[in-house]
Write a protein that binds this DNA or RNA. Structure first.
Lengths: 209, 209
DNA sequence: TTTAATTAATTAATCGATTGATTAATTTTG
DNA sequence: CAAAATTAATCAATCGATTAATTAATTAAA
């Protein structure tokens, strides 16, 4: 019973995540979400309080995933900067591609120039990831393993931006790459390994002495 | 009079572009747009037919800008691949930063996974730019000036993605870079030259033999 | 174990507010 | 005067949210 309820809630959040990715936060109506999820509209408010509550619940559910990535690599001193970089790329590409709906939803909201409670919250979450990556780069430069005269900040934009471009503009990137980047099978067979390899190569080209 | 009318229309589109960037297409109400522009709400429909008409009018107004970039460099055979690349970066960074509201608005809409007439239109526009860039890279590889074993498609994602990340997630990139990336003065003094230089360096590192 | 009481889950109907759009009347312009 | 521009008022539709009533599930009492 307790388990079933959680499953039902999870099902609603799964559907909501997809609908938010399809239509955007404002474009996704609670009727569309509840209808697609096969539950009464009032259940959304019963479970999550409000539409924004649904949105935030999706976030809370995924935050754990993000922080796991950080915990894995973050302050592990047994790895070299290059190894850390590799592990970070591996782990991050994996998580982002697997949760592309959430990722698309997140970035659509954060791209609103008007500040709000929501954009602040999202910014804080994303910044955690950025900071870890920045730390790895900074350490590598400090220890002399990475080239000195690099633009560390814009390199951040490149790594996250490349990944965003592929995931967040699927209509474009699917044409460029020649296969549907949102298709699960294509992601496993083609996109993930290719993207990992490319990002590593790119970083090496730019950071190597 | 004819001139004034055009000015008024342009003013409305300027305001609408900003509001769309702030709140997204669905989040931006026609009342907010007309109110901010200081015109009666009915004028939007009188001039542009509908809310979507306003949105499309913004596009039509900016498309010229995009195609200008293409015309400048596109098929000019007097430039070497490296020169073309330089010019493309210069021109593109300039246009995108100057029209960041439009750019944000465009990418928010194109990130909707659900296909629609609108996403198709936007995709077609963006693809024109992508194709030109791809052509420059392909030519360079063909002529032997660029390294052979590169991932040309993902390099596209990197160039456009880096720029997108800075412009489309201003709350993040402003923190990372240390200044407001949406501020006109900071854009001229810091962002533009830095971004141009970085992208050229990055391309050189990845493409040079 | 059966039954009564209590809580949780779910539904259909409806609320007021806001949305984009339209109308008809008015003002401005040529 | 005639055409274009502009306004205030209002339209139906949709939005998120709430209500009160009903069913299902859990617990307590006998």
């Amino acid at each position: 019973m307790e388990k079933e309820k959680t499953d039902k809630k999870d099902h609603i959040l799964d559907v909501a995540e997809r609908i938010f990715a399809e239509f955007g936060y404002d474009g996704a109506s609670t009727r569309a979400i509840s209808g697609e999820a096969g539950v009464n509209m009032a259940m959304l408010n019963y479970y999550f309080g409000s539409k924004e509550g649904v949105f935030l619940a999706i976030f809370e559910r995924r935050i754990a995933m993000f922080q796991q990535v950080l915990a894995e690599i973050g302050n592990d001193t047994s790895f070299s900067p290059w190894e850390k970089l590799d592990k970070y790329i591996e782990s991050y590409v994996e998580k982002v591609v697997n949760n592309n709906c959430f990722h698309i939803m997140l970035h659509r909201e954060i791209s609103k120039t008007k500040k709000s409670e929501l954009t602040d919250k999202i910014t804080a979450i994303v910044m955690k990831n950025v900071t870890v990556f920045q730390g790895i780069i900074a350490d590598g430069v400090k220890s002399g393993e990475f080239k000195k005269d690099t633009d560390q900040e814009l390199l951040v934009a490149t790594i996250f931006g490349t990944k965003n471009y592929i995931i967040n503009t699927p209509h474009i990137s699917s044409v460029v790459l020649g296969y549907d980047v949102l298709d699960g099978e294509a992601q496993e067979d083609k996109l993930k390994p290719r993207l990992k390899k490319y990002l590593k190569t790119l970083l090496k080209a730019y950071l190597q002495n």
